[in-house]
Design a protein around this nucleic acid. Structure first.
Length: 480
RNA sequence: UCCUCCUUAGCUCAGUUGGUUAGAGCAUCUGACUGUUAAUCAGAGGGUCGCCCGUUCAAGUCGGGCAGGGGGAGCCA
């Protein structure tokens, strides 16, 4: 058996000293030909491996370079120096994998996030990305834990979908037909997808919601958590072509039930990270604080990262209707002094980023749930309100991120739904299977979608979505 | 896709009104030192100035195009 070692996280918490132990990990720095800062990813903290002078041949010492993988065995002792409580006095050191220091791109110094993005395959070995991806893991785990505890069924919706009528954005085509112009054609010159692998045209999913609704009509409460693909040419710090989405769908829920669940859900997973990933979050908070020092005073956030997360956990989200929000914005000094690029004049327009930011960051200074939007700016499946103008939709806006959740009560009345689909030119025959939920035992139901990476952004305090997914896909980029 | 800024050593950046051989800090290598904390000290190596075209006696520097990146916007999660 090879893996007879103790993880560094466990060793650093050890109450006992003067015990024999073995560690394996990657060298962060080798100081003074004596002190190895070793990391194995179990925690952001390194263990200091002490190499007694003259105890090892120069040949071995030369191979202890930044990035090298080593195994060290010895005794865990109370640290002689300051800066750590315990350290490993090494009796044996084995180089498991060499790392040419001249070629290894990570140096014992601060690197820019832009540079690290170019070497995303190695950035896990930095403090920042170590913390980010451990937090990402914890959030994913907390999500499953939350829904499992509430009796939700985790539903795997398809990644390859036949439907192209979900209306959630541009889709990536999936085909095995040749791309050199020799694909079989119909008489009118279009591609004959009957000859394709699935016997029809297929795409990568843009949302599992419609399939989720089907399952909610049997299990009552379900959620999906999987990858989603959008072929939009979006070049922003908040969009990815491949991202992960959580989509719960609940029978017998109205819009308010939906908002209550979404709020409880966000609170719970943040609380989970605060208790289980305290060290990582503290590291990220410090990183953010240092970054903010570079900014002019008025651009700095009022709260530190931990403070902000605790605030979200301990305070109710503000709930306002679209109509109330428009009123607040129209009456704001910001609007009167014409500081918005798009001034608020009337009811019915979609809110711009600047408006959402004003509501969340300036007016309420906390997460906001906006509800009951004009039907013209929302999707066909959202339940039409009795006023004839609005639908039972809700978005949760988070400070610094913008829209983090989008959800609605669904239109369960077949006639109303088909009427709306007709108005929006959505072909009913393609969604016949979806309409069956309304034909056979329909009921009030609701759900929402939460962009996982946006949640990770919010919790880690990172600002670019490409830095919170291990291998980001975006226009003109699919490396690794 | 639009607006805007940027691209000089492995990394982060200086580089004057266009003018000899393009600089610094960190990193790397060599040596010294040895309880260090991104160790310290001394020395060395390291450049097709993003790419193409143009203006000019002369371009890192001026102009145009392209590519890549940052910030903002749209689409959205």
């Amino acid at each position: 058996m090879f893996n007879k070692r103790t993880k560094i996280k466990e060793l650093l918490q050890s109450a006992k000293t003067d015990i024999p132990c073995t560690v394996m990990g990657w060298v962060r720095t080798f100081r003074n030909n004596q002190f190895i800062a070793l990391n194995d990813g179990s925690t952001n903290n390194n263990i200091q491996v002490v190499v007694a002078l003259g105890a090892f041949p120069d040949e071995t010492l030369k191979r202890i370079t930044t990035g090298a993988c080593i195994k060290a065995s010895g005794t865990l002792i109370a640290s002689v120096g300051k800066g750590q409580t315990v350290e490993l006095k090494a009796d044996e050191i084995e180089i498991l994998g060499d790392s040419d220091a001249e070629k290894f791109p990570l140096q014992p110094k601060k690197h820019s996030l832009e540079f690290l993005r170019e070497i995303a395959h190695l950035r896990f070995r930095t403090n920042t990305f170590g913390a980010v991806f451990r937090v990402r893991h914890a959030l994913a785990f907390a999500i499953h834990e939350f829904f499992n505890r509430k009796g939700f069924v985790y539903l795997h919706t398809p990644i390859i979908t036949a439907s192209d009528a979900e209306g959630a954005g541009e889709m990536f085509k999936v085909t095995t037909l040749p791309l050199d112009g020799t694909a079989p054609k119909n008489e009118d010159g279009s591609i004959n997808f009957k000859e394709d692998f699935f016997g029809r045209s297929t795409n990568l999913t843009v949302s599992g919601q419609l399939e989720g609704e089907l399952a909610a009509m049997a299990f009552s409460d379900i959620y999906t958590f999987g990858p989603t693909f959008r072929a939009e040419n979006s070049n922003t710090a908040r969009h990815l072509a491949e991202f992960w989405m959580i989509e719960p769908e609940m029978a017998f829920y109205d819009l308010e039930d939906n908002m209550n669940l979404a709020e409880e859900f966000i609170r719970h997973i943040i609380k989970y990270a605060l208790t289980h990933n305290r060290e990582d979050l503290e590291f990220l908070a410090q990183r953010l604080e240092e970054e903010e020092k570079q900014k002019p005073q008025q651009d700095r956030s009022e709260m530190g990262l931990i403070e902000k997360l605790e605030f979200v956990v301990n305070n109710d989200f503000e709930r306002v209707t679209y109509t109330e929000a428009i009123e607040i914005l129209r009456e704001s000094n910001h609007n009167k002094k014409k500081k918005f690029q798009y001034l608020i004049e009337g009811w019915g327009i979609d809110l711009q980023s600047e408006h959402e930011r004003y509501l969340v960051e300036k007016h309420f200074k906390k997460p906001v749930i906006l509800s009951n939007y004009p039907k013209e700016i929302k999707a066909f499946y959202m339940r039409q309100n009795d006023d004839g103008k609005t639908v039972a939709a809700m978005d949760i806006l988070a400070p610094g991120i913008g829209e983090i959740v989008g959800g609605s009560q669904r239109e369960e009345r077949l006639d109303k739904l088909m009427e709306r689909m007709n108005e929006m030119h959505i072909p009913a025959e393609e969604l016949d299977w979806y309409l069956d939920t309304r034909r056979f035992g329909a009921c009030k139901h609701a759900g929402f979608g939460l962009g996982f990476e946006r949640l990770v952004l919010f919790v880690t305090g990172m600002t670019n979505i490409r830095d919170v997914i291990p291998f980001p896909r975006f226009p003109k980029s699919a490396s690794f």
